[in-house]
């Protein structure tokens, strides 16, 4: 059970308090109707799925309830850092 730093609570808490929420920085297009099918597919389904550094989202669902972002190594599962939603990709 990994330990996760919530940037809102500024506390390190166990994974059971959190829900994983997929890859980060995939913003919903402002006008989806303007997108081609291929562009919409990319938004919906295409994921980086890297071996290594991964920008991802978590929600402190059994804590403050906030969504936030994290950089984690998918090979070691170790977090590099977590940061608040809305902050630029790190």
């Amino acid at each position: 059970m990994i330990l996760i730093h919530c940037p809102y609570c500024d506390d390190i808490r166990p994974e059971l308090e959190f829900a994983y929420a997929g890859e980060a920085h995939i913003a919903r297009p402002a006008d989806p109707s303007a997108l081609s099918d291929a562009e919409w597919e990319k938004y919906l389904f295409i994921r980086a799925n890297p071996r290594g550094r991964h920008n991802e989202r978590w929600r402190h669902v059994h804590g403050c309830g906030r969504f936030f972002n994290a950089v984690r190594d998918t090979v070691t599962d170790k977090f590099e850092l977590t940061y608040k939603a809305g902050e630029p990709r790190k």
Binding site: M1, Y20, E23, R51, E56, R72, T74, V75, D77
Partner: peptide, 12 residues
Amino acid sequence: QYVSYSQRGALH
């Protein structure tokens, strides 16, 4: 619940 290549799961 999370993406990983570690081949290492959690106890819970």
